[in-house]
């Protein structure tokens, strides 16, 4: 058995002082072998760390080289053109980029306040014995695979919205000038709004769990001092906890935004995959990830494939920037809390 042999090797070294002088050469040999193994192990682990670096480099190189044909054919017009026509091989990224940004924006508008309020509840109001169960439940929500959200959104949530929320919105804002075009009918069920709402549900647990962690890290002395001068619970949260943890909260929100931007399956099911920009958020649209997921395997011709990879590059660039900011913010608050 190798493990007993290895133990023996160490035993020899450990008992080294007790061994006879005659065994000195063998002891030196064993020591050299150990030192060699030591250096080797260090090199192996270092290589593994470098492989992680190369993964990111590989992703960037692969995406750039894959998208070259598209950028060579369309130039920077690719970014500003709305057309998406596989038959004439004219492609532009504007509609998917618009869809990605709009769905994520609406999702964050809903998820950030709700997520912060849930974290407020968990850290300040919730009775001790309930904290752990609710915390775990929220984290389970984060663990559900996105395809489950997708299938649920398609069969349950979209028809529900079609019958309730969407007609309500259309009726409510139908006569108000600008809002009437944002909420212009008919109620399709699927569309930008449905995708945004599902994204909001998916992002909520990320924002909650990170903000709960940073709220928990506020020194109790600060809060106690605020209570001492007569602040209400909400005032303590609003004027002490939130300002103190601002950087961390922004980091958590950016992390959630990174998720929302790149989310694929949940959106693909309910967005409708229409390559056009419409003013109404009730209309079908598309996002970068949904376009890739829907069309990549059916893409015929190099230019079509390359255009989709170029979309992937744009998505990667956007999420990279957002995630880098998020990590930077979270690193800053970690350093301050120590």
């Amino acid at each position: 058995m190798p493990s007993t042999r290895r133990q023996l090797v160490t035993d020899i070294v450990l008992q080294g002082t007790a061994t006879e002088v005659a065994e000195a050469p063998s002891r030196a040999k064993v020591l050299r072998r150990l030192r060699l193994g030591d250096a080797l192990f260090r090199i192996i682990t270092r290589t593994a760390a470098i492989i992680v670096l190369m993964l990111l480099g590989g992703v960037i190189v692969a995406l750039v080289s894959g998208s070259l044909p598209a950028f060579r054919a369309y130039g920077l017009d690719f970014l500003t053109a709305e057309v998406w026509n596989p038959v004439t091989e004219k492609f532009g990224a504007l509609a998917p980029v618009y869809g990605t940004l709009v769905t994520s924006l609406i999702a964050m508008l809903i998820a950030v306040p709700v997520g912060l309020m849930v974290a407020f509840f968990l850290t300040e109001l919730c009775p001790m014995w309930l904290r752990r169960p609710i915390g775990i439940a929220i984290e389970l929500l984060a663990g559900i695979p996105s395809i489950i959200y997708g299938i649920w959104g398609l069969f349950v949530f979209a028809p529900f919205l079609q019958q309730t929320l969407q007609p309500l919105l259309i009726g409510l804002f139908g006569n108000i000038p600008i809002l009437s075009s944002i909420f212009a009918g008919p109620p399709y069920g699927i569309g930008i709004l449905t995708a945004s709402l599902i994204l909001a549900i998916m992002v909520l647990p990320f924002i909650t769990s990170i903000s709960r962690d940073v709220f928990d890290a506020v020194p109790p002395v600060l809060k106690e001092a605020a209570y001492g001068v007569g602040c209400t619970t909400w005032e303590v949260f609003r004027s002490v906890v939130l300002p103190y943890t601002r950087v961390g909260v922004i980091g958590g929100v950016m992390l959630g935004l990174g998720r929302a931007l790149g989310e694929t399956m949940a959106v693909t099911f309910v967005i409708g995959n229409a390559h056009k920009i419409s003013a109404s958020i009730l209309h079908p649209g598309t996002t970068i990830s949904a376009s890739i997921a829907n069309e990549f395997t059916e893409a015929v011709g190099d230019l079509y494939t390359s255009s989709l990879i170029a979309l992937g590059l744009i998505l990667f660039f956007i999420t990279f920037v957002v995630l880098a900011i998020a990590r930077y913010m979270l690193m800053r608050i970690e350093r301050r809390i120590g």
Binding site: G312, A324, R327
Partner: peptide, 13 residues
């Protein structure tokens, strides 16, 4: 960054 990178990009890679 890799931890939260969009998984569809990994597929493209």
């Amino acid at each position: 960054i890799l931890l939260s990178a969009p998984s569809i990009v990994v597929g493209l890679f």
